[in-house]
């Protein structure tokens, strides 16, 4: 049953992506050109997966959260915090392992904080994570003392700009994280637990699920993903920009999850489809950049395309289409 409904959904996202790519190709015929340059693949298509990786990683963490009927608005700010910690640690001369461990530890701590507020104090996720969304950026600014902390450690920079087998590192990391998370939730009972909590938390708790600890872990994982994305974003520009790193990306991540077919009301979810959603968003962004449209149109074009995608996904539209197909839904006479 689930496999069937998922394959049905899958087609929606793939069609949407194909549509966006087709439009990109029409406005810029060189869109699919990929060449080999300095030991790496080079082309607009590669830009899409490279630039889409941070949001894809955020979406991987956001999917289980939304599936449990939650939301995490703080991931953009946590990105900034993780980037700031990584930059200051590497500038202070710590080795890469320590730098990464510190940045990820802080990010996980941020996630745990959210989880505590939500699972144990019963604060609504929207409000609970709003706290860190605002405070987190301030925290990042405190760490960087308000300036952009630049660094030149080649190992850290490699995470943001290096490549493995010709593919950009951020994309490789996102892919590995997606596979790991997907296998973990689908090869264990974890996915089922998450869906149970999202569908009806008290029922899930009465059946013996330790829903509090689970929710705590899910938000910690969201923090971890935001940390990874934050390190990538900082490594990409060789500096921690506390004011702008990850700004508004929480909204892109939520959108990616929604395009991926996960309902904000919890329940059914798919991590790979969320990643596909992130890629669709980025394909649109990159398309706008190469199209040569004036920047005033960016947001309008984006909003328009997203609306079309969401309308196509709407269950009600499916019902209407089905009704029209079965003919005469409203008792009208067909000529």
């Amino acid at each position: 049953m689930r496999a069937q409904s998922l394959s049905h959904l899958f087609s929606h996202q793939v069609i949407a992506l194909a549509g966006v790519l087709l439009i990109n190709w029409m406005v810029f015929p060189g869109f699919f050109d990929v060449t080999w340059k300095d030991g790496r693949l080079f082309g607009s298509l590669i830009d899409v997966i490279n630039r889409g990786a941070p949001v894809a990683i955020l979406a991987i963490g956001m999917t289980p959260i939304i599936a449990t009927r939650g939301v995490d608005l703080s991931v953009g700010a946590v990105m900034a915090v993780a980037g700031a910690v990584a930059a200051t640690f590497t500038v202070a001369g710590h080795p890469l392992v320590v730098t990464l461990a510190a940045a990820l530890a802080v990010a996980i701590a941020c996630g745990l904080w959210n989880g505590l507020l939500i699972a144990f104090l019963g604060i609504q996720p929207f409000v609970a994570t709003l706290v860190l969304m605002v405070a987190g950026r301030g925290l990042a600014q405190l760490i960087t003392e308000g300036s952009i902390v630049t660094f030149s450690d080649p190992a850290l920079i490699f995470i943001g700009t290096g490549s493995l087998l010709g593919l950009p590192m951020p994309a490789v990391i996102a892919l590995l994280l997606m596979l790991g998370a997907h296998l973990f939730v689908r090869r264990t009972a974890m996915g089922l637990f998450i869906e149970a909590i999202g569908t009806n938390r008290s029922a899930a708790t009465y059946t013996g699920l330790r829903s509090r600890s689970l929710i705590l872990a899910i938000y910690a994982f969201g923090g971890f993903c935001a940390g990874v994305a934050g390190i990538i974003a900082a490594a990409d520009i060789r500096g921690a920009d506390a004011n702008n790193a990850g700004l508004w990306l929480e909204l892109d991540a939520i959108l990616a999850v929604v395009i991926g077919g996960t309902s904000l009301l919890g329940g059914r979810f798919s991590i790979p489809l969320s990643v596909l959603g992130a890629i669709i968003i980025q394909a649109m962004n990159t398309g706008i950049l190469v199209s040569g449209f004036p920047p005033e149109f960016n947001l309008i074009v984006k909003a328009g395309v997203i609306m079309i995608i969401l309308i196509l996904q709407s269950a009600r539209l499916g019902e209407i289409v089905a009704a029209i197909r079965t003919k005469n839904p409203l008792g009208r006479k067909t000529p």
Partner: peptide, 13 residues
């Protein structure tokens, strides 16, 4: 910086 880099990547292509 991040957006400047992304936009320039697009321009270069």
């Amino acid at each position: 910086r991040a957006k400047g880099k992304e936009v320039m990547e697009g321009f270069l292509k």
